[in-house]
Simulated scan of single mutants.
Amino acid sequence: MLEEKMDQVEEERPAPLGIKLGSTRTIVAESQEEGVKTHDTLTCLATYEDVLTGDQRIIYGEEAAYEYPDEVQFMLRTGLPEDETQAEATAMFFDSVVKATNTPSDSVVVYAIPAINNERGLSNLAEVLEESGVGEHLIRSYPESLCGSVPVFGDELDAIGRIFIAINFGSTNLGACVYRRGEQLSRFATGAIAGNEVDRWIANYVEEETQGRVNIDQTTAREYKEQHGDFNNFEPFTDIIQQPGGGTHEYTIERSVMDALDRYVDDAIDEIANTFLPQLANDYMKVYKHTLQEPIVLTGGMACIPGLVETFEERLSKELEHDIVVKAPDDPVTAAARGAHRIAERFVEEGRY
């Protein structure tokens, strides 16, 4: 009888969810029998008219980007919905994701959100999340880099009890801060060094490398970065474009992708070593000394580039003339959502909802 009551209580618990509404990708992490499952999609949508009914229909994610490349809307390119129009589009997108993934409303939800000083954007995002229909029992938000750091330090939320530096290599900005038992100290962010900027640099470098014969858009540049970027073992690759007057042109890329990625790492090190760390030392000298003895956690989608973490560690150590240890989560793309899910699990386990 007691076991039956305990099973009943267990069944009545809300579902823990971890969600990251990212500028490029949106991830939903949920519990299943085999473990944590993640749903991953591009953060974009397009609308079209149903030829039978005349109604407006919504298509999102990879399908929207592939089928409507000229009309697709990436509503969170800056990381947050900046105005009412973007907020409405974000709400439509997220509602579509929730329905498609059968995300339960009877849930405790932790969102991984950008650490950006943008009150209006954060307010718009908060409104979208609160009206989404999920998280009936509890909704909490934590910085993306903190959530992304959780898998690095283990399943028991050790990251919440530590003092460490987290650097987020995201699509829209380079961000850094110190976490002291979950509290953010000495935050830093710049949009001049970002994954989206790397895409623009690659497009420019491709034009230069091909002496102006090839012009690619930033979507293609991003695909080059994700498919071919590799600090360990980059290999030149060929591609083919359709010529305006007819026919095709085959070209080989030998430098453009890695030139852009090298520039990204060097610029990031310059900002971290010469702006963020001096700021941290000035504000919290003891914390600064402590964190340099601890692993620095690298989060964000750019950390997926093979060899980037090791290259950053080597070059930052050289710049500081001090041996630095840099770690990144397995699968950085989903890490923030998985970390948020673990925090949501803790709320459910402790009945704090």
Score class of each variant (00 low, 15 high):
M258N: 06
E136F: 12
V150Q: 09
S23M: 00
T41M: 13
Y224R: 03
N168D: 15
Q184C: 13
A335E: 06
S105T: 12
V51D: 13
D283G: 06
L52F: 10
T334A: 13
D230F: 05
C44G: 05
L185K: 14
F164W: 02
E10A: 11
E183V: 15
Y111D: 06
F164C: 03
F164G: 04
E12R: 10
K289Y: 12
R315Y: 08
Y179Q: 05
N102L: 12
Y284K: 06
K99I: 11
E183W: 12
L277C: 04
G229Q: 02
S171N: 14
I253N: 00
L146V: 07
A176I: 06
P306I: 06
V98A: 02
H341V: 01
V97D: 00
D199R: 02
I272S: 05
T311D: 05
M6F: 08
G61Q: 01
R222G: 14
R187I: 08
D106Q: 13
R222V: 02
I113Q: 04
E30P: 00
G54D: 09
M258W: 13
V198I: 15
L129Y: 00
F153Q: 11
M1D: 09
A335H: 07
E33W: 03
S141D: 04
V178W: 03
F234G: 00
A194F: 02
T38N: 01
V152C: 14
T172R: 11
D270F: 12
E4S: 10
M1Y: 07
E349I: 11
E223V: 05
R200I: 09
Y66C: 04
R187H: 07
A260R: 08
A260P: 02
V333L: 15
A126Y: 08
F347R: 01
T26F: 01
I202A: 10
A340T: 01
L280A: 03
G247Y: 06
K289N: 12
T26C: 08
V97Y: 01
